[in-house]
Each structure stands twice: as C-alpha cells, then as structure tokens.
Design a protein around this nucleic acid. Structure first.
Lengths: 148, 148
DNA sequence: ATACAAGTTAAAGTTAACTTTAAGTCAAGA
DNA sequence: TCTTGACTTAAAGTTAACTTTAACTTGTAT
C-alpha cells in the first residue's frame, strides 16, 4: 500500500507543506519518489509514528535530526539512540506530571467559579486558596536550552 | 511579604524580561509599583500560579489576556470565565492523553533498543511493531487554530 | 487535445514569544 | 560623593517552525 503526501498529511493532521519542510530538514529519510513525487509506504509509517511523538513532546527539529542521522548509521549507534530515547522518556514523564498539576489548578478553578456563580459573586471564594500552595518550578529543561 | 521581579522570575524559572513582557501584554494586572519598580505581593501569586498553568498548556498570550480582561470586569463575567476554564481543562486532559500515548511509544522504543543492543543488531527487532498500530490524530486543536 | 488537480522546488514571508539593547533612574554601601 | 547593581522603558533583534508564493511538471478526466 502506498500513500500520497496529502493522504499522509491528513493522517498526521498537518499540511503537506509541513511534511515537505520536514523532508527538507532531513526528517523523512528513505521516502521513495515516483516521477519526482513522494510516495509513502507502510515502512515509512513506523518512523512517522515516532516522529509524531517527538514533535508532540516539543523535541526540536535539530535534535530529531540527530536521531535520524544516528539511525542512518546503523547498528553502531544503537546505544546512543537508546540513550536519546531514555532521555525523551524522562522528559515526557516530567511533562505529564506538570500537566497533571495544571489539571489540578483548572479543577480548583472550576470549583471556584461554580461556587462563585451560585453565590453571584466571587467574594464567597476569593480567599480560598488552591490545593497547591506554591509556584511550581519547571522540572523539564526548556527546549531552547537543551542544545547548550 | 513582597518580592522583586528577579525573585519572582527565579521562582517561575523565567527571565525578568519575560515577566516585563507579560506585563506589557497585560498579563500581570494589579502589580504594585514603588519608585517605578514592580513589587509583587502574596495576592499576585494566586494569579501567577494560574498564569503558569495557562502557559504550560500552551494557551496563547492573546487568549490569556481575554481571561484577564474578563476577570477585571468583575462578577458579571463569572460564567464566561467558568466556560474558558472548562475549555482549558478539556484541552489539558487531551494533552495528557496524547503524552501518555507518546510515553508508550518511547517505552516500546526503550524495549526495542534494549533487545537490539543485546543482539548487537536491530535486525532481531525491526519487524516487531509497537503496540499502537496507527498514526495518532490530534485530539487537541492547534493553538494557532484556536482563535479562528 | 486540453484543462484541472495535485504534486514539485527554491526562496521569501509570517508568527508568536521572547530577548537584547540603549539609555536612563534610584538606593545603598565605600 | 561616587560607584555599583538592580531596576525601568521603548524599540529593535532573534528564533523556530512553519507557510506562502511563483513557476513549473505530471497524471487523469472530459
């Protein structure tokens, strides 16, 4: 089974131009061409799924490219790729944790407004503090700082 | 207790210039000045914690500003603010879900490389597919598309 | 045959969110 | 009194990640 760039773009919920941009950045290795047009095969989807994940955790394109280049070198880079995956796993765990804290804050606010709307005024709740008493500090390194 | 811009910036793990930028965008309402300098008080931290969460779920500054402006109008906007909070809660739930799927992919890759390293080659695993058989489609609207 | 839809490239344009710069104010310590 | 460090502003600069444009090619339907 083969797919056009538009079909793949629709599956990934991105524009075809975005996939062309990724390709130009070296993030789509091994995609075939027929009459100059990109033709995606089933084997390409394995990587597209990983790419999708890397994008979702905000891994910068430059860093994804490092991974791609390691993969292209073959078995000699297995350990390095393993290390990168482990690092990204830790990052996504941290992100999930942060988002769970945000969820708590929004749930508190949901309660807060529910009570305020009942009473017709915020005055009844404005001195009730959220469960989390302090400002959360990032556990995740900023992407822009990753490369330093 | 009061805090300087640097102290607050350190607590939030951002640059003082970022807080000044937020202020210039209207995201820091009610911050006092002494001799022209910003002085943060305990009451400001309530909002800073919410702001922190809004930033972490990638809520665009323009949209955060809408919320701030509603809050400044007082009790007449309680329902609108409640609706915004609910919407953001749904967004963060979707994000957590997406990240959990990414985590699965990275855990699969961790296993994949563990086996490959043991064997000295990827060949032993390269035909083993991850648990998630399809490309995930975004459940979360892109921030850039939110405003349309 | 001809039009149309969907693909191609290189290059320029856009956007959001900062970040830096330059020029200045102010309070405290030597 | 002078210097230092932390603050201030407005405006310009930066960056990453697309997105659009213009000019072109190709396969399919009428």
């Amino acid at each position: 089974m083969t797919y056009s760039i538009k079909e793949v773009a629709d599956m990934m919920n991105v524009e075809p131009s975005t996939l062309r941009y990724y390709d130009s950045m070296g993030l789509l290795p091994g995609v075939k061409r027929v009459n100059g047009r990109r033709v995606f095969e089933d084997k390409d989807f394995k990587w597209l799924r990983v790419l999708n994940c890397m994008k979702k955790i905000n891994m910068p394109i430059d860093k994804i490219k490092v991974y791609v280049e390691l993969a292209e070198k073959g078995d000699s880079t297995l350990q390095e790729r393993f290390d990168m995956i482990l690092e990204q796993k830790e990052i996504v765990l941290g992100q999930i944790d942060e988002l769970k804290n945000c969820l708590k804050e929004f749930e508190y606010k949901e309660w807060y407004y529910t009570e305020a709307i009942k009473a017709g005024t915020e005055k009844v709740v404005e001195n009730v503090t959220s469960c989390s008493p302090t400002l959360e500090v990032d556990t995740i390194p900023k992407n822009k700082k990753e490369g330093k």
